[in-house]
Amino acid sequence: MFLRSFAVGLLGLLLTACGSTRDTRVDPDAADSVTGTGLQSMDIRTMAQRFSASLQSDNILSPGKEGARVSFYVTELRNDSSDVIDKELILSNLQTELFRSYGRRVRFLDRSPEANELVDAERRMKDRGQVSGTNDRPVAGSDFALKGTIKSRDRQAGRLRSSYIVVTIQLVDLVTGELVFLDNYEMKTESEKSVINR
């Protein structure tokens, strides 16, 4: 009886071992099946869409009465949380979402060191007549700068852990220093440790 059961078990094991693994394309808005605390793809996309919608409804970046376009650039995202984060991924996602929403109605400036270097080099070559074209326009100044912070509160006791993350974006008026827009994206995760890792 035992040997028979054992043989059945072994067969079951072999079938399990032969089970296929997967490489599946999934919806980036779906919750991550690879769990863990911290921001997931769903959060990064949702926060970009939400911040963009929120900025639009606030009308702060809309053109003035004379149709003058507002200019702004995205600056730093400061990570004060306990979760290592690819800040460029969040910022570039947000910038893309804003661009989709505003298109040419807003002047998006690139103030990254790489862009500054490119602009400086191009203007120098034009000044020297090394390339065609003239520097007939000044480098664009900015009306606003968009910056942000990521903060977290982490609690851990026994086999439980929770992580509360707040991503805040702020739009600063670069003439007055006034904070003209502010919004939060919040998420919280809880984890329970398995007995095998305790």
Binding site: M1, F2, R4, S5, F6, V8, G9, G12, L13, T16
Partner: peptide, 11 residues
């Protein structure tokens, strides 16, 4: 009994 021993062996 059989199911239990099968599961045990597999595990």
């Amino acid at each position: 009994m059989r199911r239990a021993s099968t599961t045990l062996a597999a595990a």
